[in-house]
Design a protein around this nucleic acid. Structure first.
Lengths: 141, 141
DNA sequence: TTCAATGCAAACCCTTTGCACGGTA
DNA sequence: TACCGTGCAAAGGGTTTGCATTGAA
């Protein structure tokens, strides 16, 4: 059972292992990221991080997110016509369903689709480095 | 066998049917779109359109692309970290493979993946309005 | 003590928009 | 002729960056 503090600590270690300094600002952002069960954008992360450490600037949020992404502990999502959203990578890989009416984002994972993607790429002489699959949906009547 | 002129004419009719005027600028852009077998962005479309009609401005390219998208004759693609790219919708629906090294974009279609997506959405009480699937790949060694 | 990380504000890039003029139907 | 579409330039929104300062190790 991984609680918020544990996840944040794991991210800290991942950064520290790469020679990155853990500042108050970064610690605050890590805590926010670890505690987020939705898919917040940079602005929202900034807002939440300032509740913990009020000296965090939006520039630092962006810079830290880029660093975390480079370390592979954070994923950058880019849904249609929206600013980028972010999620930690402690949950296993998954794709997203977006409710077009409410904007709600849900996660799913299909081994079959994953396998088919690999197969398709293979037939063309490629291997999949990463992919993006988003289902823009509406509730069935 | 649909040649470039035919496709452009079809797009013209689609627009005209909706009460949209066909100007020299729009005709030029339609011709460029119909003839494009790659996935150009707005800037590149602007460059190509000016070779036909040199009074086309970038603003008009954007405005016309939005109109064409609203009519459903053009699709807006949004690959990671790139400006939007555009393609006509005369080809049947397909998804994209992006070569991470060369930037080359290929198309593919998998009925199985399409069916699985519908199934997954259905299980959650949703129906898929549209989706986005991109495979970011590299050549296999 | 050192040098990476920070806040601020300006810059960036792609895209959209306000306005007065031009051209299609 | 009417009024939609246009070019231009300015504004917009999200994101990045230059610079002098701060602070983690």
């Amino acid at each position: 059972m991984t609680n918020v503090t544990t996840i944040a600590k794991e991210m800290e270690e991942a950064l520290r292992a790469d020679g990155v300094r853990i500042t108050r600002q970064r610690a605050a952002l890590l805590k926010v990221l670890a505690g987020a069960d939705d898919h917040p954008d940079a602005n929202e992360l900034h807002r939440r991080a300032r509740e913990i450490e009020d000296t965090v600037s939006l520039a630092t949020v962006y810079r830290t997110l880029s660093a975390l992404e480079a370390q592979g502990v954070v994923h950058r999502l880019a849904f249609e016509g929206e600013p980028a959203r972010f999620e930690t990578t402690n949950a296993p890989h998954h794709d997203h369903i977006i409710d077009l009416e409410t904007g709600e984002v849900m996660e799913f994972r299909s081994e079959k689709i994953e396998a088919l993607q690999a197969l398709i790429a293979e037939e063309l002489g490629y291997e999949v480095v990463h992919h993006r699959l988003e289902l823009y949906c509406r509730k069935r009547k």
